[in-house]
Design a protein around this nucleic acid. Structure first.
Lengths: 251, 251
DNA sequence: GTTTATAATCGACGAATCGTCATTTATAAG
DNA sequence: CTTATAAATGACGATTCGTCGATTATAAAC
């Protein structure tokens, strides 16, 4: 007297199907265009089944956001392996963030909406836990780089900030730059004439110079670093962007 | 054979009534809790009349956001009159931004959601124009400060950025810091142990040091500047925050 | 093979929201 | 007093959301 038990792998498979369909709807009609009713129509399951996977629209959004953070984490890992100075590696990580925001602008924006009270409150504990885990993963890579630079004396850190505070400074600068420059966000006065990609990297370099992170911008040709990032470490992604007509403007 | 014509001042008055009611609803129930139906019930006008003022929920949100930007503009103006070095004035402006984000967290968050595609697309041209105007107003003050500092040789600008690019660097750093630290946004891993107000100002100082904006952080006691800002220029606002149990943590 | 317990799925439903638009009301000129 | 029409009204159809009782499928028990 035992009913069928659902295979855990098909469960995961369906979850991916749902996320795919949701992403497609969002890309076609914007975040507002994502509707549980529409999603159900796009998918070979009934509404009840969909709701057994995600507790609602918000939970779905956070799930989508989490999937994106997984992708970002892999990009960060690759950036962390960049051969060069610690400062170059930090730049590589920021470059990875930039690439990500261009390849998956929707996902990047979801980080914002996913953090707004309306969404987080309604999301399931499960997705919230996953989200926190992803955040931790993303920061540890950066922080270990920072600690090494502090230990090696490459980052003089004149404000005597803790490694976590430096990580936060970097993160918020990059986040702010990308958010304000995001192509999917309406034109914003202050960024009108901005060459988006240059701007992000300029802001990061300002902060790194402020930290006295050697070699300073004036002491090293970081455009070579960018060249290597574009043509080596992230060649595939940069090509993908080119193919999408989203070529980066870095020179 | 002419019907009554509505007084333009009562028109404006009603608009304020609507914005007030909307803000109240948002503060009570979050952005999601704002509903046109609820709003109509809170207000002595019918649904049709409400819709003659705002084309929909998104238009209303942008209207609310714009009102906030007007307030922020006044704070910026006051900060721009701070007596001190150009760097101190820039810090004052960032301090004003911080104050604003604490006094009106909802408004600050609205800048984010107001820029998301779903909202901007649906908002009326009128509110969008107002929004752009406010943005321009906010930046001109900063940029004039920057230009003066460049002319006076106080900001050495080693990356040779244009004044607009410097303004953007400042804006995005401040925006990112406040957004990631916003008390109304769910706990964010990376900012866990962060003393929020200190963090924003540390980030700004990092950027200003990167710009070689004299006097550098190490050459001047900027905690005195903060003291003056707290007790003189923005005494009233700081007191208000204290009274709300939101005391700033700056020392 | 039949029965049976129950996990899994389904989709109709009520409540709530959105924006519209035909109707009603109010008023100033003729 | 009539009348043209700006202003205001709120009922309505269309969507959306999330729930929950009904239905289906399946694996063990007999």
């Amino acid at each position: 007297m035992s009913p069928r038990q659902i295979d855990s792998s098909t469960l995961h498979e369906r979850e991916q199907t749902l996320l795919d369909a949701a992403l497609q709807l969002i890309q076609q009609q914007g975040v507002e265009g994502l509707t549980m009713d529409k999603l159900v129509k796009q998918v070979p399951f009934s509404k009840g089944t969909v709701y057994s996977h995600f507790s609602g629209k918000e939970d779905l959004l956070l799930g989508l956001c989490n999937r994106g953070m997984g992708i970002l984490g892999k990009l960060f890992q690759r950036a962390g392996r960049f051969e060069g100075t610690t400062r170059e590696r930090i730049i590589a990580i920021n470059f990875a963030y930039l690439i990500y925001s261009r390849l998956y602008p929707m996902m990047f924006l979801l980080v914002i909406s996913a953090k707004s009270p309306g969404v987080t409150e309604k999301a399931s504990q499960r997705q919230r836990d996953i989200h926190l885990q992803h955040e931790a993963d993303l920061t540890t890579g950066i922080i270990s780089n920072i600690k090494q630079a502090l230990a090696d004396g490459e980052c003089l850190n004149p404000l005597s900030l803790a490694p976590e505070e430096i990580a936060f400074a970097n993160w918020s600068s990059a986040f702010g730059s990308i958010a304000l420059l995001c192509k999917d966000i309406e034109q914003c006065g202050i960024r009108a004439q901005m060459q988006s990609e240059q701007a992000l990297l300029a802001n990061v370099n300002l902060m790194l110079d402020g930290l006295q992170w050697r070699p300073l911008f004036s002491e090293f040709d970081y455009s070579l670093t960018l060249q290597r990032l574009k043509t080596e470490l992230f060649a595939a992604e940069v090509e993908l962007l080119d193919a999408q007509g989203q070529a980066l403007q870095l020179d």
